[in-house]
């Protein structure tokens, strides 16, 4: 066993705090995948995961919000049953939902960048103006859709139009609902920002 012989190098308090929040948010993202409504005619189930992606960007910023979704993906890849319907493994990352999963990571980073406009100085989401909130959430959703549908069409070898019909259209009402919900949560201002 490679025993460490150097003196202990402690992780500073701010980093531990943000890291713990990122890890717990990643676990919450996993729990959200069990709150789902399977749709009979669509391949990707409707879960609350996108809601957690938005919250990661809003409350942890681009750096730690992205890290949080990254932890979620890594835990799923090595076997935690955190992906939709309790799936796990590297296979899911490259399977037909792989584009959405990558979109979640980049979506959280995008929301964080647009709302906080800084890598480490975070502002209170409750004080962010409504147009900025709506704009950043919609931009993240468009990014998630774009990556998701292109990857879906490539892996399943179907036409882009068919992929849009199966993998985007059924989710639009649910996703608009999740944007409204996120704004309601942010504006209520009951969650302590870091």
């Amino acid at each position: 066993m490679a025993t460490e012989r150097n003196s202990v190098e402690l992780v500073d308090a701010d980093t531990v705090g943000l890291f713990a929040r990122a890890a717990l948010l990643a676990a919450l993202m996993g729990a959200a995948s069990y709150v789902s409504i399977p749709l009979p005619f669509s391949p990707v189930p409707v879960t609350l995961q996108v809601l957690v992606v938005y919250l990661a960007g809003l409350y942890l910023g681009p750096l730690w919000g992205g890290a949080s979704i990254g932890l979620f993906l890594a835990a799923g890849a090595v076997g935690a049953p955190v992906f939709a319907e309790g799936k796990a493994g590297v296979g899911v990352l490259v399977g037909y939902t792989g584009g959405y999963l990558l979109g979640y990571l980049l979506g959280a980073v995008l929301v964080g960048l647009l709302v906080h406009r800084s890598l480490d100085r975070l502002r209170d989401p409750a004080e962010t103006s409504l147009p900025v909130l709506v704009g950043s959430l919609v931009a993240a959703l468009v990014l998630i859709y774009a990556l998701g549908v292109v990857w879906f069409a490539h892996v399943q070898q179907v036409e882009l139009a068919a992929a849009i019909g199966v993998a985007i259209v059924p989710f639009i009402p649910g996703d608009i609902l999740k944007i409204v919900t996120t704004i309601a949560i942010a504006k209520r201002g009951v969650i302590d920002p870091v």
Binding site: V16, R21, L24, L28, L48, L51, T181, I185, R188, I191
Partner: peptide
């Protein structure tokens, strides 16, 4: 649905962050 989801979101996130602060 919006009220249900936002209540679940607020309570779920504040519990998770409370656990995170104790963990840290």
């Amino acid at each position: 649905p919006v009220e249900r989801a936002s209540r679940l979101g607020v309570l779920g996130l504040s519990r998770a962050f409370a656990r995170a602060d104790r963990l840290s």
